[in-house]
């Protein structure tokens, strides 16, 4: 008797399991066809760091305190600055990060006294060599400033 009971019970359990998958058939798709369709990033998304552009100055506020360089656990950040005058603050001349070593902990963003560092929204960062992972943030900032100005110009014309 046990033998047949096992077969019937087993068969029923399989049918019950199939019921779950059958119901799933009529529910909406959850997969996203990635390169053609993209999911919006969360507001907290941590990309590689970049220099923030402040509205009032139109540029960053880095004071070359080197706190970010010192706090980075992996030695990702290299900051260069030089003094314009004999006495006075340093100005930023170079800000390079090696993203291949970055663990995205965000300690640099938190420690920045002028909060001029922020996370970028980039995630499609494919490169062929290690050199592709090295980002010059000054260059990036210059490009962003340029784009902003162009945008402002076109908006001004449209208005």
């Amino acid at each position: 008797m046990g033998y047949f009971k096992d077969i019937i019970d087993g068969g029923l359990s399989l049918i019950e399991g199939m019921g779950v998958t059958a119901r799933r058939l009529f529910q909406p798709l959850i997969t996203v066809q990635y390169p053609r369709k993209k999911i919006p990033l969360s507001s907290a998304y941590r990309g590689h760091i970049e220099l923030k552009i402040f509205e009032e100055t139109g540029t960053h506020k880095c004071i070359v305190c080197l706190n970010c360089e010192k706090t980075c656990p992996s030695g990702v950040i290299r900051v260069q600055g030089e003094k314009q005058k004999e006495k006075g603050p340093k100005t930023l001349t170079g800000y390079v990060i090696d993203f291949s070593k970055c663990s995205l902990c965000g300690l640099c963003v938190e420690i920045c006294p002028t909060s001029t560092l922020e996370y970028s929204r980039e995630y499609e960062l494919v490169g062929d060599t290690g050199a592709d992972c090295v980002f010059d943030l000054m260059l990036r900032l210059a490009k962003q400033v340029e784009q902003r100005e162009e945008k402002k110009k076109t908006q001004g014309i449209a208005a």
Binding site: S42, A44, Y45, S103, L104, E110
Partner: peptide, 20 residues
């Protein structure tokens, strides 16, 4: 992801609280 900004290696807690 919506609070930590990461999906696997969160690094969310801080000494004395959380980061966000």
């Amino acid at each position: 992801d919506s609070i930590t900004g990461s999906r696997l290696t969160y690094s969310y807690c801080r000494f004395g609280g959380v980061s966000r």
